[in-house]
Amino acid sequence: MSTTTIEIKTALDATLHSDTDADKRSSVEVTDYNNRQTVGKITVDHPKMVCRNVNVYYGAKQALKNVGIDIGINEVIAFIGPSGCGKSTFLRCLNRMNDTIVACRVAGQIKLDEDDIYDKSIDVVQLRARIGMVFQKPNPFPKSIYENVAYGPRIHGMVNTKAELDELVRASLERAGLLKEVEKRMNEPGTSLSGGQQQRLCIARAVAVNPEVILMDEPCSALDPIATAKIEELIDELRENYTIVIVTHSMQQAARVSQRTAYFHLGDLIEVGETDQIFTNPKHKLTEDYITGRFG
């Protein structure tokens, strides 16, 4: 139902605007609406993750069609697109969080370094330790701030002594830019913090197991602008040590924090490119419509 509506709207937009401002903005050839092949360069020189021909089905419904993209080492890549386009679904494929959904089926290949993450030999426990995740709504455990950060290292057996754990917790909070604020209240419940602090606590929790990749699913959608600014700043700092994949609804945010951007539309990966290029000079009509606010 909603799919039809969007398509009609798109078609309508096409008839209204096809030969006005769009042509003035782009000097190169713009791919037409009906072409759903990914445009732009999907490969990078030093990939951390390589995804090819990823198809995701929820029961009979196909949520992602033939997605192929590389995620480079120490880069921030943003997934943008209208609601229901499959960007969160794709993000959750990257650490196999979709495994928990019974009807969900993933086909294709996703590699982390040299390991195919959907291979039988790969354990999700190990995979999720290597690929951390931060969720849309801050979801600290109903435990103390300290326990929240210490949980990951503890279950994975990363430390041997209490002193080591203390150090690791402090370092993780420091990396998440939260240490100063919570130093004196480590034993207070994590849920007593403000929304923005809670989200940074979740980032600290993810950082504590020293993952290689951090996935962020609209991490700022429940936060106010000031908390958002802090998280964005933090993402920029975290890039030094981690590869970050962020799903966002805010195009400004994508423009601010990411180096590369991927635009999804109704289950298709429409366009991938350098963030600057995507926002100033999109090569696909759909991307252009979306970033100019014409639709979505």
């Binding site: 969080m97 426990v125 929790r205």
Partner: peptide, 26 residues
């Protein structure tokens, strides 16, 4: 709440750890 389960699984907790550490106490 499912968010607690996701948080635990996202950290790399096994299913039993998720249940034992988080779901069951709640």
């Amino acid at each position: 709440p499912p968010s607690i389960r996701e948080a635990a699984l996202g950290m790399g907790a096994s299913k039993l750890q998720m249940v034992g550490h988080h779901v069951l106490p709640l």
